[in-house]
Write a protein that binds this DNA or RNA. Structure first.
Length: 223
DNA sequence: GGCCAGGACACCA
DNA sequence: TGGTGTCATGGC
């Protein structure tokens, strides 16, 4: 696949689905909490948890730090995996206070690679969550790939289904201009398309990419 | 009632 | 490094 093909896919998706304006959050800290809570969870369930944290006025570093883990569990219950996720929230703010005195800007304003490395060192933050934070909270161009990305583009026959995270990430970064807006929108569009194309929920018809891909997009009804 | 959701980690070979 | 089990709620 050539770079211009990938850009064309992006433009087609943009035209069909419209701008997504990700990430849906009021603050950078909210982006981070959302990125952790949405791990293997439906965003709808995450929204409930976010609202609970807002209602308690603890959707900030000090708030999470000063709230007991058992209380956090109750508030984020809707997002699932509340034992693990409550610990992940704690691990993040503990890291933030230990290394940056609780100053989120100090963490986020670092060079991209250092920031990503910092994030990956925190228990509970893997590559996708780290990239989401770098891209949508720190506003630095780090392409986010997820299960949808792998599923859709392997169906198109562009990448191998067994490709690992870093390779898939590089595939996009090597074939796209290093543009913050494109990175943000493209990932969001892929997720929105992925939702519509979930195996159990066929929607609409015709491949949005104009390709005759290996996977049967016609049956699946992409758009 | 079963499947899946905007993953990451532990453990194993 | 690759493959599998685990975590858990809520919508469809």
């Amino acid at each position: 696949m050539k770079s211009r093909d990938l850009i064309e896919i992006y433009e087609r998706l943009l035209k069909h689905l419209g701008k997504q304006y990700w990430w849906p959050a009021e603050t950078e800290f909210e982006v981070i909490i959302g990125a952790i809570l949405t791990q293997a969870a439906a965003w709808k369930n995450v929204e409930i948890a976010i609202e609970n944290l807002k209602a308690e006025k603890i959707l900030n570093p000090a708030g999470i730090k000063n709230t007991r883990q058992n209380q956090l569990k109750k508030l984020i219950k809707s997002a699932g995996y509340y034992n693990a996720k409550s610990r992940k929230l704690k691990e993040f703010v503990n890291f933030l206070y230990k290394n940056y005195g609780g100053d989120l800007n100090l963490l986020l304003n670092q060079p991209k690679n250092k920031l990503r490395k910092d994030l990956l060192s925190i228990w509970g933050i893997g590559p996708e969550t780290a990239d989401s934070i770098v891209l949508y909270a720190a506003h630095k161009p780090s392409f986010v790939v997820d299960a949808y990305t792998k599923r859709i583009f392997s169906r198109l026959g562009v990448i191998d289904n067994g490709i690992d995270y870093e390779s898939l990430k590089k595939f996009f970064e090597n074939n796209l201009p290093e543009n913050l807006g494109i990175y943000k929108e493209f990932h969001a569009l892929i997720v929105e398309l992925g939702k519509k194309n979930c195996r159990t929920k066929p929607v609409c018809g015709g491949c949005p990419f104009g390709y005759s891909c290996r996977f049967n997009f016609k049956d699946e009804r992409a758009l």
